[in-house]
Structure formats: structure tokens, C-alpha cells
């Protein structure tokens, strides 16, 4: 689930030598390449930017929980936990260590008043995840009512947010881009 798609439009703050890689909903990227800038566009989705300052590796994901009641253990939480686990495991494989991981969280906006506040439940999940995992929370920007473009330099841990008011993004209730296969499609060996 590692996107290799390159951003194809100019971004504010583009610097010479930077290689912008766009991360879309349901995907994640990890790298130790100091020339890479991970970017993503967020509405009600949340992105976690995670960095290990010693190994100088980092990564970013972009996820959306399906609507649910927000109760602990509810099935909808599995998407978020799985997305986070993939990102963290990717960092560990690159030499990161759990006890050094620093996290920034962005997104979770309420883009339209006509729908349930999916963004708030995404934001609450992400904050709860960081707390449960005992990662160092470095801040970020959650909730609100505007879309955001995030730029993250994974090797250095530098992160930048550009607010995008009136940006039509994720205005519909979106199902997770990669819904888990029905149980009958899981590998069955017994």
C-alpha cells in the first residue's frame, strides 16, 4: 500500500531539489530520503506524520474511518488501527524505533454541515491512538472547517500546513478506499 505517485501540480513552498510525493486516501509512504517531501490534501480525513529523529526516517498516512458510533472496539476503528500499524511497521523496517517516534496529526475537518461530523471522529481516533501507543505528540492541526494541504519532510521531521478555505474536498460521506474483503475472501486454510 505504498504509493509511488508523484505530485503533478505546483505546490506552495516548493524548494529546489525537493521531490514531492503525493499520498492519497488509504495509502501511506515511508522513506529516509532527505529529498522527498510527502504531501497530502485533507478534508475530514486525517494524516499522521511520524518521524524518528535518530534514524532520520519518517512517513505519512492518509486515512478515513467509516462512519460508526465511536465506541471502543467498534468494527470501524479497525481501518484506522490498521492504517497506523502499516505506517509504524514501515518505519520500524527502515530502522525507526517505537520509543523515538514523534507524531504530528492533521485534518479531521468538518467540511460540510449537512453531514455527520466524520472529521471529529477521525481526529478523536488519531489522538487516542497516539496516547495509547505512548508516542511523542508534537502537535499539528485537527478539526476546524477547512481543507488542508500538508507537506512533510520525513527525514528531517519538518512539517508544514497550508489551509485551503473553500476547497471542495471530500464533501461526500466517503467509504474507506480499501474496504476489507468479506470474511469469505480471506485466505482460508483450515
Amino acid at each position: 500500500m505504498r504509493s509511488a505517485a508523484l505530485a503533478n501540480r505546483p505546490l506552495a513552498g516548493r524548494e529546489p531539489g525537493d521531490r514531492h510525493v503525493s499520498v492519497i486516501q488509504g495509502e501511506f509512504q515511508v522513506t529516509d530520503d532527505p529529498a522527498v517531501v510527502l504531501t497530502t490534501l485533507l478534508g475530514s480525513c486525517v494524516a499522521a506524520c511520524i518521524h524518528d529523529p535518530v534514524a532520520r526516517v519518517g512517513g505519512l498516512n492518509h486515512f478515513l474511518l467509516p462512519s460508526g458510533e465511536g465506541r471502543p472496539g467498534a468494527d470501524h476503528l479497525r481501518y484506522g488501527v490498521h492504517s497506523m500499524e502499516l505506517l509504524v511497521n514501515g518505519l520500524l523496517k527502515l530502522g525507526g524505533r517505537r520509543d523515538r517516534l514523534q507524531v504530528w496529526l492533521f485534518g479531521g475537518a468538518r467540511i460540510t454541515r449537512q453531514l455527520a461530523d466524520i472529521g471529529a471522529s477521525n481526529a478523536a481516533f488519531a489522538e487516542d491512538f497516539v496516547r495509547r501507543e505512548e508516542f511523542t505528540y508534537k502537535g499539528g492541526s485537527l478539526r476546524g472547517d477547512t481543507a488542508r494541504r500538508i507537506q512533510f519532510w520525513p527525514a528531517s521531521g519538518r512539517v508544514r500546513q497550508l489551509a485551503l478555505p473553500n476547497t471542495p474536498v471530500e464533501v461526500l460521506p466517503v467509504a474507506p478506499s480499501r474496504a476489507p474483503a468479506p470474511a469469505t475472501d480471506d485466505p482460508e486454510f483450515f
Binding site: 468494527d75 500499524e85 474483503a181 480471506d186 483450515f190
Partner: peptide, 26 residues
């Protein structure tokens, strides 16, 4: 987290009773 055939084969050799792929439902 993935249907890695080699992993599943090794686990079967050691007597795993079943697998659950992530993300999973209750």
C-alpha cells in the same frame, strides 16, 4: 497483515490453528 504464502506455510508447519487477516471484523 498480508497473505504471504511463505509465512502462512511456515506457520502451518509449526501447527498454527488459524489465521486472521487485518483489518478484520469481529
Amino acid at each position: 497483515g498480508r497473505a504471504d504464502v511463505e509465512l502462512l506455510k511456515r506457520a502451518k508447519e509449526f501447527g498454527v490453528n488459524n489465521f486472521v487477516m487485518k483489518p478484520f471484523t469481529v
